[in-house]
């Protein structure tokens, strides 16, 4: 079975309809833990994008060679390999960003979103479609993380990407670690609200 969606649709699907953070409610740990600044969100997004795209392509490429009984271990092995690679690369070339993200880079290996995508999409589709689906999911994750980071950084520190835009710190509360929960909850509620309003407007 091949997907009938175009490449562009696959990407948009990942960012909006099936956004990993706000719609599928997966990979919440980093969304709460290190979404304190836009930059953090961006960096982890890049790492996830890399792992997702490479794992999807790898699985799609070898999908006929994988024995169905050892499907899950193979997925895990694939993901762990690419996580190790990005972990080593980041540690070598971007040590500062790597230090800020701490253990979360290594924990990409346990992100449900990646395994899920391999199981639901990559093992059935062509390399090309899997590539674009991986891009979509990765960008969707990155978008979610950056949106959270934007809100938290702006409200908490009064800055965007480290540049002072407000000149004061409105609510330090938002960068404090536990505020991640509130922030994610409020933003989800916000998206729900938009959806409700949109549906109502459509019906009327």
């Amino acid at each position: 079975m091949a997907t009938d969606k175009s490449n562009m649709q696959l990407v948009v699907n990942g960012i909006l309809n099936e956004n990993p953070i706000f719609r599928l409610v997966l990979s919440m740990c980093p969304a709460v833990g290190i979404s304190t600044t836009v930059m953090n969100g961006f960096m982890l997004g890049v790492a996830v994008l890399f792992v997702q795209v490479f794992s999807s392509c790898t699985i799609a490429l070898f999908k006929n060679k994988i024995h169905p009984r050892i499907r899950i271990p193979t997925y895990t092995l694939t993901i762990a390999t690419w996580v190790t690679v990005i972990d080593l690369v980041l540690a070598a070339y971007l040590p500062e960003a790597y230090a800020r993200m701490g253990i979360f880079i290594k924990l990409i290996v346990a992100f449900a979103i990646i395994t899920m995508r391999l199981e639901m999409f990559a093992c059935k589709e062509s390399v090309n479609a899997s590539f674009w689906d991986g891009i979509g999911m990765g960008l969707g994750f990155m978008f979610g993380m950056m949106a959270l980071g934007l809100v938290r950084e702006l409200l908490g520190l009064g800055t965007i990407l480290g540049y002072d835009v407000l000149g004061f710190k409105p609510l330090l509360f938002f960068v404090l670690p536990f505020a991640g929960f509130f922030c994610v909850g409020l933003m989800m509620a916000f998206f729900n609200y938009i959806e409700i309003v949109y549906k109502r407007a459509k019906r009327a």
Partner: peptide, 22 residues
């Protein structure tokens, strides 16, 4: 409120727990 039903309110509650655990 309907906008908070389900996961959003769970996050708010978890946030309060986190605050308490602090």
């Amino acid at each position: 409120p309907p906008t908070f039903k389900g996961v959003p309110i769970a996050f708010i509650v978890a946030g309060q727990f986190a605050l308490a655990f602090l």
